[in-house]
Design a protein around this nucleic acid. Structure first.
Lengths: 144, 144
DNA sequence: GTATCTGCAAATTCTTTGCAGTCAT
DNA sequence: ATGACTGCAAAGAATTTGCAGATAC
């Protein structure tokens, strides 16, 4: 969740150019909690950057991921989702409506355990929980 | 990891027919630890079922997943991977060579914590760790 | 000024679908 | 006997690639 000035510095330091598109895409990700996929980012920016293409979004999220500004999520859908929240946390997906929420919980002790048990050097992790969210639970009860 | 007799019973009970292809695909998954994708399963069965198509594999893994015999994994590659090990465990992926290993560790206490913190009913979870495996670590050291 | 970037279109790749013939029950 | 299944080919969908013109530096 860096401001444009910091993002600019970081992009330059890593050898990438700073373009309005790149800043805009990162800002979309900073200002949402919905973990959008490429198309959702595209739709959000459509009014402001009507000529922007999906290819630019894909190229940009790759760069943002490479320089450590965002994470790429795989919840099991056909499309990837993107997240600018880089603090250690997990995700929980509703199997009914598809929403994805953050679980702001730290699992670093799990990482230590796993590193001790395996022969890997662990760089990062992704935890996904699946279940029915409160809203969908309520809806289901109303029906039955 | 059920035997053919138990798989047969389960398929019938859930209203699916029992075919040699279905048993063969499940058996491939039971007899490997490499978490194959559809194409790998296809290649493995090619000598024995030379006319089997990828479509059959995709349809079958969907059914096996639906009746609780396998899990579908998304490690972040382009293709899904399949796992017949249904005991609670996590996966660790080597970012160098792409291998996927099991972490036979139980994370049920995390599930309880998350269920308490969120308003979800949790049905299942997937934990993915990413890092460099022992073999790739050794290779890298030799080069430098 | 020049190397990189954007945006378009085409290509690629994994997965799904429709359908005719086959098989399980 | 019949409803479900297989296998083929074609379709679908997300992502990547190639390239010409535009832009950051």
């Amino acid at each position: 969740m860096l401001d444009n000035k910091k993002v600019t510095e970081l992009l330059r330091k890593k050898g990438f150019k700073v373009t309005p598109q790149r800043l805009a895409i990162y800002n979309v990700l900073c200002n949402t909690k919905s973990h959008p996929n490429a198309e959702m980012i595209f739709n959000k920016l459509q009014p402001y950057y009507p000529t922007m293409s999906l290819a630019t979004i894909y190229k940009t999220v790759d760069i943002l991921n490479e320089i450590g500004l965002i994470n790429i999520l795989n919840v099991g859908e056909d499309a990837f989702r993107y997240d600018a929240n880089m603090t250690s946390h997990a995700h929980i997906c509703c199997t009914e409506c598809g929403r994805i929420d953050d679980i702001m919980m730290n699992f670093d002790n799990c990482v230590t355990d796993v590193e001790n048990q395996s022969s890997y050097n662990i760089e990062k992790y992704q935890f996904y929980f699946y279940g029915v969210c409160a809203e969908c639970k309520a809806k289901k009860e109303k029906v039955s």
